[in-house]
């Protein structure tokens, strides 16, 4: 069964229909890349799935269970949305680290706040907090920043910041980790370290959706690729299908434009 199923998602901002009915699904442990030119709706799609925007129409299923239904107009309570949101992790293009906290604090802040809602929090407070710190440290180690634990974001390079934000998202153990153009705000020489981390996660079978302009990387790391244009999915398939043998004219035009760069 698909872990994530997105059906007929539509979203309009003012007079512009950004998403015109997007469908896709993915399986556990899969890496799915979403490519397409700017304005094709890739980022809006991620934001709708992550509850940062509310889709006007369409459904989202997680493990076959309905997570979101755009036709239901009664608003879900913030608490319900929060619980649903926690199934997903999101890594932003421009990191959005919390500047006043150290690397370790950035990663532990949300888990510590969530732990307060646990029923056994008062009894086992010390143990719970220790577990959170240990977990955070091991994740920070996975992204190779152990020596930066007590540094502040302003003391890190762009690539290091993005690795912290990946660690921060992983600390909540999301079912699916989403990346919104994770290397677009980075200098070219820094993109490699992020792509290496994502590759490592892929080898550990973390389920990921990656919106990216790094076509070479997408081909390399993805199990499947989606090509979006004008708010719809035009082409979908293995990297060999979509990138090496594109069928649609728009896909060909998009890829050849990138080749010429």
């Amino acid at each position: 069964m698909a872990i994530l199923e997105v059906k007929n998602i539509k979203k309009t901002f003012g007079k512009v229909q950004v998403l015109k009915g997007v469908d896709f699904s993915m399986y556990e442990g899969e890496v799915l890349s979403v490519i397409g030119s700017s304005g094709s709706g890739k980022t809006t799609l991620l934001r709708c799935i992550n509850f940062l925007e509310r889709a006007d129409e369409g459904c989202i299923y997680l493990d076959g269970e309905l997570l979101f239904d755009g036709s239901v107009h009664s608003k879900a309570s913030p608490k319900e949305i929060r619980a649903k949101q926690l199934n997903f992790g999101l890594v932003f293009q421009d990191f959005n680290l919390f500047p006043q906290y150290t690397v370790l604090e950035n990663v532990t802040l949300a888990p510590k706040l969530l732990a307060k809602e646990r029923e056994d929090y008062k009894e086992n407070k010390k143990q719970i907090l220790e577990e959170i710190e240990e977990n955070a440290k091991s994740i920070i180690d996975r992204v190779g920043l152990t020596e930066k634990l007590d540094n502040y974001p302003c003391q890190l390079s762009g690539g290091q910041k993005q690795r912290v934000s990946i660690a921060r998202a992983l600390a909540l153990r999301p079912r699916i980790l989403f990346f919104d153009e994770p290397t677009s705000a980075l200098d070219p020489e820094l993109t490699g370290e992020i792509l290496r981390v994502i590759k490592q996660l892929a080898s550990e079978h973390v389920t990921m959706v990656i919106v990216t302009h790094e076509i070479g990387f997408a081909r390399n790391v993805s199990d499947r690729i989606i090509f979006m244009a004008d708010g719809v999915v035009l082409e979908e398939g293995t990297p060999e299908d979509v990138i090496d043998n594109p069928k649609h004219e728009r896909t060909k035009a998009f890829l050849s434009k990138l080749d010429n760069k």
């Binding site: 992550n50 509850f51 940062l52 913030p78 929060r82 949101q85 926690l86 997903f88 992790g89 999101l90 932003f92 421009d94 959005n96 680290l97 919390f98 802040l109 949300a110 706040l113 969530l114 934000s165 921060r168 998202a169 909540l172």
Partner: peptide
């Protein structure tokens, strides 16, 4: 304060107050 700070908190499951 940029919108991104609020959104980062939101996707990490924090309440508005938090």
């Amino acid at each position: 304060i940029t919108k991104g700070q609020y959104e980062a908190g939101q996707v990490l499951g924090m309440t508005k107050t938090q």
